[in-house]
Computed example of a mutant assay.
Amino acid sequence: MTSQWLFTALVLLVGLERVAELVVSKRHAAWALAHGGVERGQGHYPVMVGLHTGLLAGAVAEVWLADRTFVPALGWVMLALVVLSQALRWWCITTLGQQWNTRVIVVPGLSLVRRGPYRLVPHPNYIAVVVEGLALPLVHSAWVTAIVFTVVNAALLTVRIRCEDAALRELATPDPRTAEVAR
């Protein structure tokens, strides 16, 4: 089996991991909305989905169409970073429990999570996203995909993190009018 096929299998496994995330996210979002949650940032969500789908498709397409080679010194290090980013992502998911989903949903009355990776940095999941977005394509030298994803993702994360920070401030100091409605 060629390294291109092995890389394609790796990307498919990452894609399956994304599907698992979406299943968990959908269940958690339904819970949050059923408990009075209010969604924020709906406008950037489809862009985020498209970008992450593009990362997977672009990495495979570049490897095959540009005939990228596997460079062991780069590829093995990048693979280790991909695995570590997945571990960090699932640490974030398990730490937040039902409060985690791929959307920004504020549930009145819940407290901010300050344990697990959240005791160290405010948005640890985005560290996983940044590392994976750079490392996954570079496992098989797909440097164009790595650069394009990283640049576009930086712009998207600027919007996303501002949205989340505003929602988290709302959670930390709820609007009295919202609190009245939630009672």
Results as ranks from 00 to 15, higher is better:
Thr2Tyr: 06
Thr2Asn: 10
Trp5Cys: 13
Leu10Asn: 14
Leu13Val: 15
Leu13Thr: 12
Leu13Gly: 12
Val14Met: 06
Val14Phe: 03
Leu16Pro: 03
Glu17Asp: 15
Val19Met: 09
Ala20Asn: 05
Leu22His: 06
Val23Thr: 02
Val23Gly: 00
Val24Asp: 01
Trp31Ala: 08
Trp31Pro: 05
Leu33Gly: 01
Gly36Asn: 02
Val38Leu: 13
Arg40Asp: 06
Gln42Asn: 07
Gln42Val: 13
Gly43Pro: 03
His44Phe: 13
Tyr45Phe: 11
Val47Gly: 04
Met48Arg: 14
Met48Thr: 13
Val49Thr: 05
Val49Ala: 10
Gly50Leu: 11
His52Pro: 05
Thr53Pro: 01
Leu55Arg: 14
Leu55Ile: 08
Ala57Glu: 05
Glu62Val: 00
Trp64Thr: 03
Leu65Tyr: 03
Asp67Trp: 03
Arg68Lys: 12
Val71Tyr: 04
Val71Lys: 05
Ala73His: 12
Val77Met: 10
Leu79Phe: 10
Leu79Trp: 05
Leu81Trp: 01
Val83Met: 06
Gln86Leu: 13
Arg89Asp: 13
Asn101Leu: 00
Arg103Gln: 06
Arg103Ile: 00
Arg103Met: 00
Val104Thr: 05
Val104Met: 02
Gly109Arg: 01
Gly109Met: 05
Leu110Pro: 01
Leu110Ser: 15
Arg114Thr: 15
Gly116Thr: 14
Gly116Ile: 14
Pro117Met: 11
Tyr118His: 08
Arg119Leu: 05
Val121Glu: 07
His123Glu: 12
His123Val: 04
Ala128Lys: 00
Ala128Asn: 04
Val131Ser: 01
Glu132Gln: 13
Gly133Ser: 07
Leu134Phe: 14
Leu136Tyr: 07
Leu138Gly: 05
Leu138Met: 13
Ser141Asp: 09
Val148Glu: 02
Thr150Trp: 06
Ala154Gln: 07
Ala154Glu: 07
Ala155Thr: 08
Leu156Arg: 05
Thr158Pro: 04
Arg162Phe: 05
Cys163Lys: 09
Glu164Gln: 07
Glu164Ser: 04
Glu164Asp: 07
Ala166Met: 10
Ala167Ile: 04
Asp175Ala: 14
Asp175Val: 11
Pro176Ile: 10
Ala182His: 10
